[in-house]
Design a protein around this nucleic acid. Structure first.
Lengths: 336, 336
DNA sequence: GTGAAAGCGCTAACAG
DNA sequence: CTGTTAGCGCTTTCAC
């Protein structure tokens, strides 16, 4: 039941554990080929599995990277994890995934846990734009680099990979207006997520460009989930206001809103009357009536990992802030 | 930059590391209250974070549990992870998530990795019904219990938590027939996933019950993804056959198929003409035209964790096979 | 109540 | 090419 150790193998063969260790870590230069063969055969025969915890303790490096996301049910974060894991794995890193459930307290706990696991770096999408900023600073100053993705953090000079929410929102709403929408409801995100602010600004300025008056009543808190989106739109419709377009915050809440409109027998015009900024093609594929402006999730994952790995390799490297714009990737770099 | 250790604290206070260790692990019985207070204050002041790897090595226990899933983009697996993580966390366990990408080779690699991380148990949804059975046996015989969930494994007497796919498929198709469907296409899952077999059997026997002849041409390989579902249905429609209902395999591929039908301007009758067995309410919420029979994912996660924890606590405990039927939970227990 | 010492499994000098 | 030795950070006897 107890796991086989290099000492077991050494005893079995009547040699020292150093030689076994060398052989098993592929040090061909310092082990006789025959000994090598003998050792690896015995290792397999005895079902040896290297104890990573011992290796890490000795090496003073965990090869662990933490990923903290605010929620797990969105295809965007799922895809991000999928690709990040793939990328990091190629560089010999394991990933520890932690979910904060949109709750700053849980985020703190997760950060502690990751530090205790001695992660060498953290990829993180925050659940609050400035609530835990001080902690983030503490962590990075302890030599654990953090790369923030998707959601902006305020008051910190850390590496960040984001999408230009303002621009995407602006273009999306512009597109809606150009195809005839005039009374566009904006299902806004919560205040504590900065992306919501930027998207709202994009919505507002697009209206301005076409001299459509901005009406506060058309901006409603749409939340993050499908249920919240549905509830928001139901409440809005009860006011008896007219509507010919809807620009949602998350994919899920937009779909929830759509479903509610349908349920209320509210005619949904074709074309781009329903829009959101989505993580994947899945949304447009399964909902031909919803136009999703796609977030470049694969690029975001790849870039985030690259940035993090660079900072792990060179702790004094400059932090970089990357802004993705659909297929267009623009970078700006600055020193802290 | 280097992390603070208990030795650093001991030196700072001019006491021994044993006392520090005792204090920090809350041994009130053997440390003077004043020393206790002093130590915890210093620990906080110096930013001490316990090194989990050292603790685990010393304690010979990792408090890690591995979760292996075949894919990550489905809401079902996401929800499972979410709830499992929550449950395990309450019992002081961390989770390491690994994705096999529906590939048995990657599954082997993941299993190796988890063993090297000395996980104390594994929750797993396999990607092939019998391809890696021998390895599963090796792992469990090494004292690492595995609880298989959702997808059945053949030729092994391990713990399993599953849904009754046959029964759910039968009921679903029966419901479709009762509401008028006669020419029901079954978007079948791949052969190497046993759930597909059971659902197909449910489809077939439901037809039989109503004396509707079974037509092989109406059973098409629908794959797992939206793209595969769309392609399958497109190919089917090109044969010029009539159709008035569709029973899909996964939520995603069913939605893909629906989208394709819509694209081809094929009239989709209301009611239960489109059905699938889904992981969450999300599907029915955002797609009023798709009826989803809901899988009890929360129960599945909770039960899987309970079973696993029981086996970790008592390695000689009997393996248990639990079958969930919607809200009805039935159990059968057997000894290996 | 506290300290000294052993050791978890492994790697990495340093000898030979 | 191989063995000896020290120690990563921590817990846990065993003395005092």
């Amino acid at each position: 039941m107890k796991h086989t150790t290099i000492i077991d193998i050494a005893k079995e063969l009547g040699i020292s554990k150093s030689t076994v260790s060398r052989a098993l870590s592929g040090d061909t230069h310092n082990v006789k080929p025959e000994t090598m063969r003998l050792i690896s055969e015995t290792a397999i025969r005895m079902g040896y599995q290297r104890n990573e915890m011992a290796v890490n303790l000795r090496r003073q490096s965990s090869r662990n990277i933490g990923i903290i996301i605010p929620e797990i049910v969105t295809s965007f974060f799922m895809n991000f994890i999928q690709h990040a894991q793939q990328e990091l794995r190629q560089h010999g890193y394991r990933t520890i995934i932690a979910v904060s459930n949109e709750d700053p307290e849980q985020e703190v706990e997760n950060l502690m846990m990751l530090q205790q696991c001695r992660v060498e770096g953290i990829l993180m999408s925050v659940c609050h734009k400035d609530r835990n900023t001080q902690l983030y600073k503490d962590v990075t100053s302890h030599g654990i680099p953090i790369v923030f993705f998707d959601r902006k953090v305020e008051g910190i000079g850390a590496s960040m990979v984001r999408i230009d929410d303002y621009l995407m929102a602006f273009f999306t709403v512009e597109k809606m207006i150009r195809s005839g929408c005039r009374k566009i409801v904006h299902l806004a995100g919560p205040d504590h997520i900065s992306n919501g602010y930027d998207r709202h600004r994009g919505y507002r300025e697009a209206l301005e460009k076409f001299s459509i008056p901005y009406d506060k009543r058309y901006v409603i808190q749409g939340g993050l989930s499908a249920e919240e989106g549905a509830a928001a739109v139901e409440k809005f419709m009860s006011q008896g206001l007219d509507i010919d377009g809807l620009f949602g915050f998350t994919e899920t809440s937009t779909l929830g809103a759509k479903s509610m409109l349908q349920k209320m027998n509210y005619r949904i015009p074709e074309d781009v009357s329903l829009c959101c900024i989505s993580g994947t093609t899945l949304c447009t594929l399964v909902h031909p009536t919803v136009t999703a402006v796609e977030q470049p999730v694969i690029e975001m994952a790849t870039l985030s990992c690259r940035l993090l790995l660079k900072q792990i390799a060179n702790p004094n490297a400059a932090t970089e802030s990357v802004m993705l714009r659909g297929n267009i990737v623009e970078r700006e770099s600055f020193r802290t």
